Amino acid sequence: MTLQWTAVAFFLYAEIAVNLILCIPFISAQRWRLIFSWRIWNWLSPYWNKCFFTMILVLIVLFLDALREVQKYSGPEPMQDVKVNPNLYDHIHMKLFRAQRNLYISGFSLFLWLVTHRIITLLNQVAATLVDSAGLQAQVDCAVRAARQHQEDNLMLQQTLLEDEKSMSAKNHQLKLEVEKLAGQLKAAEKAVHTSHAEVEAMKKQTKGLAQEYDRLLREHHQLQNLQRAEDKKDQ
């Protein structure tokens, strides 16, 4: 195996190990996000896209080269040379095997490179979604607590209004009783005033009658005095 294909094979083994580690179930996406937020990754992040596309191009070139080799050694021309020189049969099949091996190595390396990039992206998205969902859950819990508090306040307000209504109704009933009592007292006072007016009128009439009787008696007294004087003069 040449140096380039040895490097591609080690790269494939490294990709398999990284994917197995990323798929470990007890390491959560949030923990992976914390790992991806280390300073070393922040330092490498400007070069990540360049490295990613460079490796894709290199693997595509190697894959096409291996595909060309497979087509080369599986075509009809090498078989014609085998018929001419039978000793080349094993050599051609060895070349074809190496070309197929290189094709599989480069193809799986390219595939796992894309899968690794996708897994890392999905882990970051899942971690961000979990953080957002935790924030939304906190907001929902806060809204639920506020709604419960508002409901409790409404119940307390309704109870207070009900108590105030009962108190106002009791006060209104008491005021109604007092008004009825005052109305009765007012009627009694009106009756007393009417009776007093009647008594006053009766006393006025009685006083008037007494005054008339007094005047009559006074006139009779004067008349008697005048008669008495007239008789005294006659006797003299």
Results as ranks from 00 to 15, higher is better:
Met168Asn: 12
Gln151Gly: 12
Asp90Ser: 08
Leu177Tyr: 05
Gln151Cys: 01
Val115Ser: 04
Arg101Cys: 11
Val70Asn: 04
Met156Gly: 01
Glu180Tyr: 04
Gln137Phe: 04
Ala170Pro: 01
Leu123Asp: 08
Lys166Phe: 00
Glu178Val: 06
Leu175Gly: 03
Leu114Asp: 03
Gly75Ala: 13
His173Met: 01
Ala66Lys: 02
His117Met: 11
Ala66Thr: 02
Arg101Glu: 11
Leu177Thr: 15
Phe63Gln: 15
Val126Asp: 08
Ser169Gly: 00
Gly75Asp: 03
Lys72Pro: 02
Arg68Tyr: 09
Val131Phe: 07
Leu161Arg: 13
Thr195Trp: 04
Leu112Ser: 10
Ser169Trp: 02
Ser74Ala: 09
Thr195Asn: 12
Pro76Met: 10
Leu162Cys: 14
Gly135Trp: 02
Leu122Arg: 05
Thr121Trp: 01
Leu161Gly: 07
Ala147Tyr: 04
Asn154Phe: 02
Asp81Thr: 14
His91Trp: 02
Met79Leu: 15
Leu136Gln: 13
Val82Cys: 12
Gly107Val: 09
Asn87Tyr: 01
Asn154Pro: 05
Leu112Ile: 12
Trp113Phe: 11
Lys176Gly: 12
Asn172Ile: 10
Pro86Asn: 06
Ile105Gln: 00
Ile120Thr: 12
Lys83Tyr: 04
Ala66Glu: 02
Gly75Arg: 04
Glu178Pro: 03
Gln185Trp: 04
Thr195Lys: 11
His173Thr: 10
Leu123Arg: 15
Gln71Ala: 15
Thr121Phe: 04
Lys171Phe: 03
Ala138Leu: 10
Lys171Glu: 05
Pro76Asp: 05
Leu162Ala: 15
Ser167Phe: 06
Val144Trp: 03
Gln158Met: 13
Leu67Gln: 12
Asp153Glu: 14
Thr160Gly: 06
Ala192His: 15
Ala128Gly: 06
